[in-house]
C-alpha cells in the first residue's frame, strides 16, 4: 500500500508552498498531487513553477501527478486545464469531466469530485484511459468493497484517508462573502485562512470550513485506525489532504503504522489531538459524514 499527498486546497503564499514541498520531498510519502484545484484567481504559483516543484519532487523519488481545477467556468480556466493535460511529463488527475475529454485516451487519475459511484462507471472510464481513481468521499466501505470486486484490470484504487472533506463547490466565494466583498474584488481574503474559515451552527457545533468557492468539513476525516481493514480490502493508495500545520506528522504517523512500527489505533488517536475541530469517519461507516465511530457522537 502506498501513501499519497493530495493537492493543497488552500491559498498559501508561494514561500510557504515551496517550503512545504521541500519538506514533503524528504518525507516518506510516495505520490504527490500538485496544482491549484479550487480558484483560478490564486495564481501566485504559475504553471511553470508547479512543473519545477514537480521536477524537484520527482528527483527526490516521488511520483508526481498534476491536478486540474474542479469547477471550470471561464475560457482562461479551460486554457490552464489544457496546459496541464498536455504537460507531457507527469500523470494528470482529472477533477472535472472536461479534463477526461482532453486526455483523449492517455492515462489519467480521477479525483474525489468526479462521481464514480458504480462498477459500470469505473469500467467505462477505464476504457478511456483511467489508471487510478479516488473513491468519492461520501460513499461507504460497503460500496468500496463492491467496487473492488469488479475493478477493471490495471486500475488502482485510492482512498481519501485523512483531511478535511471536500463537500461542495460554488460559483460564489464564501470567504469573500464573509468579508462583504464581491468575488471579482475579493482582496484574496482566503489567503488569511490557511485552513479555511470555520462555520458554526447555531448550537455552536463547528460544522464546516469555508475555503473560497469550496466548502469543506470542519472535522478531519481519519481512517488510519482502520488500516488493517483497508489492507484487506486491497486499497492501493491512501491519500492525505494537506493542512497548514502537522501534515508532515500525519505522513509520518501513516507511514509508521503502515510499516508496523506503531499500532494504527494509537497513531490515529495521536493525530486526533492536533485536528482543528476533531475527527470524523461517518461516511466510511455508512453514517452522516460528521459522525465519528470512536467518539460515537451521532445524535
Amino acid at each position: 500500500m502506498k501513501l499519497s499527498l493530495g493537492p493543497i486546497t488552500y491559498f498559501w503564499t508561494k514561500e510557504k508552498t515551496l517550503e512545504f514541498y521541500e519538506q514533503v520531498a524528504k518525507s516518506p510519502v510516495d505520490i504527490v498531487y500538485l496544482g491549484e484545484i479550487i480558484c483560478s484567481k490564486r495564481a501566485v504559483i504559475r504553471f511553470s513553477d508547479w512543473m519545477e516543484i514537480g521536477e524537484q519532487l520527482a528527483a527526490a523519488g516521488k511520483e508526481v501527478v498534476m491536478s486540474t481545477m474542479t469547477l471550470l467556468e471561464a475560457e482562461s480556466e479551460l486554457k490552464m486545464m489544457r496546459r496541464i493535460c498536455e504537460n507531457g511529463r507527469f500523470l494528470v488527475e482529472a477533477n472535472d469531466i472536461g479534463a477526461i475529454q482532453l486526455m483523449k485516451g492517455k492515462p489519467f487519475v480521477t479525483g474525489p469530485s468526479v462521481n464514480v459511484y458504480n462498477q459500470r462507471t469505473l469500467a467505462k472510464l477505464a476504457k478511456v484511459g483511467l489508471c487510478r481513481w479516488v473513491f468519492p468521499v461520501e460513499l461507504s466501505e460497503e460500496t468500496f468493497a463492491d467496487m473492488q470486486e469488479d475493478r477493471p484490470e490495471g486500475v488502482e484504487s485510492e482512498l481519501f484517508a485523512y483531511g478535511r472533506l471536500p463537500l461542495a463547490y460554488s460559483a460564489r466565494c464564501f470567504t469573500a462573502r464573509a468579508h462583504n466583498l464581491p468575488k471579482d474584488d475579493c482582496d484574496y481574503k482566503c489567503g488569511e485562512y490557511p485552513d479555511g474559515m470555520t462555520l458554526s451552527a447555531q448550537d455552536e457545533t463547528r460544522f464546516l470550513s469555508l475555503n473560497g468557492i469550496q466548502t469543506q468539513s470542519a472535522h478531519t476525516f481519519n481512517l488510519l485506525a482502520e488500516l488493517d481493514e483497508l489492507r484487506s480490502l486491497g486499497v492501493d493508495i491512501l491519500r492525505i489532504s494537506p493542512q497548514s500545520e502537522h501534515t508532515l506528522e500525519v505522513i509520518e504517523a501513516f507511514h509508521n503504522a503502515m510499516q508496523g512500527e506503531e499500532s494504527p489505533e494509537e497513531a490515529a488517536a495521536r493525530l486526533n489531538k492536533n485536528m482543528p475541530t476533531g475527527p470524523c469517519d461517518g461516511y466510511w461507516h455508512g453514517k452522516p459524514g460528521i459522525a465519528d465511530s470512536v467518539l460515537d457522537n451521532y445524535k
Binding site: 461520501e138 463537500l167 461542495a168 463547490y169 464546516l208 466548502t215 452522516p288
Partner: peptide
Amino acid sequence: VMVEGRCLLSSYATGES
C-alpha cells in the same frame, strides 16, 4: 448555490444526499 451533483452538504449532516 452549489454545483449540482457535487454537493455533499446534506449527507455530511444526515447521511443522505
